[in-house]
């Protein structure tokens, strides 16, 4: 019982972490159609800025200020870079963020050095909150879950329930019409991009000290955030949450399965041991394959429905 509870809890924690890491990207990809390859770089930037602020002042100031700094930077990038590129199409936008990621990565190394920086969990949250079956649960993990849920609620409420959200969504599909109604469409896009970057920065603030803040953290984030965003469906915040939780749970459950693939298939009546040419495949234990799972899910879901789980549009 404890084991099951533990697996569910770990899956939930990981799922919410994934949502936190990808929420900013959902916003930008979904609302602007820009495949932002610099997302992980803004995430990394958030962690580094938070490190500097928390050494100068404290973590709580960093929690508020660092995302604002990253968001402001995002606004500048949109206004002076992305906007000029926009007329050349989505491909050019994507490539712009590609180049931006390279530059941010190098500049971070120039400012903060090549070594990991000592960005630590604040002492006020550095204690075990409760324990299940001998495994302690640190308070900071619960705090992370809380922030992630908070991000979801705010995003969802803003986009679905406010006038601002309505304008943003309308600006995407009918920019001319929205402009005609007296809204400043370019400014809406700047705000969306800045918001997405701020969310990435916030994820960096929260995750940077729980894990490790080093120049490789953007690279380590990898393609998983894209998997979440696309699997959930472009532009769907709740889809992204569902996708995150599915990936989190499936991956955590498969970590717990030490069974070999051949044994697993045997359980369901497929006996494959005889096919020795593929013995490498049968020897893979399910837990080793866990990290491939999100991408296989992505491929399967997209092959069935190009709109993802809850997407309103295909591209």
């Amino acid at each position: 019982m404890d084991q099951l509870l533990l697996i569910l809890l770990n899956g939930l924690v990981y799922g919410l972490l994934l949502f936190m890491l990808s929420s900013g990207l959902t916003l930008i990809v979904g609302m602007m159609g820009v495949l932002n390859f610099a997302h992980a770089s803004f995430y990394m930037l958030g962690a580094y800025v938070a490190f500097s602020i928390s050494t100068l002042m404290n973590f709580w100031v960093a929690l508020i200020v660092a995302p604002l700094v990253v968001g402001a930077l995002g606004a500048l990038v949109e206004q002076y870079g992305l906007r000029a590129v926009h007329k050349h199409g989505h491909l050019a936008e994507l490539l712009f963020t590609f180049g931006l990621a390279m530059i941010i990565g190098e500049v971070i190394q120039l400012i903060w050095g090549r070594w990991p920086v000592a960005y630590r969990v604040p002492e006020s949250l550095d204690f075990p909150l409760f324990s299940i079956g001998g495994t302690a649960y640190p308070a900071y993990r619960m705090f992370m879950m809380g922030v992630s849920l908070f991000m979801f609620v705010v995003l969802y409420a803003t986009l679905a329930r406010t006038r601002l959200g309505l304008v943003v969504r309308a600006a995407l599909t009918h920019p001319d019409m929205v402009a005609m109604l007296g809204h400043n469409v370019p400014r809406v896009f700047t705000m969306v991009f800045a918001g997405g970057c701020a969310l990435a920065g916030l994820a960096g603030v929260i995750a940077g000290n729980a894990y490790q803040t080093d120049p490789g953290m953007a690279l380590a984030l990898g393609a998983i955030v894209f998997a979440v965003v696309v699997m959930g469906g472009l532009g769907s915040i709740s889809g992204a949450l569902i996708a995150s939780l599915i990936i989190g749970l499936v991956q955590t459950v498969s970590i717990g399965l030490d069974m070999k693939l051949s044994t697993a298939l045997g359980r369901i009546g497929l006996h494959v041991d005889g096919i020795t040419a593929l013995s490498d495949v049968w020897d893979i234990s399910i837990n080793r394959a866990a990290p491939v799972v999100p991408f296989l899910l992505l491929v399967i879901i997209l092959a069935i429905n190009p709109r993802g789980l809850a997407g309103s549009r295909s591209s």
Partner: peptide, 16 residues
């Protein structure tokens, strides 16, 4: 698939 979905499905396939 087309466009973004195509790009993403190829990315997922490659990762896998």
């Amino acid at each position: 698939s087309t466009r973004t979905a195509f790009a993403m499905i190829t990315m997922g396939l490659a990762e896998a």
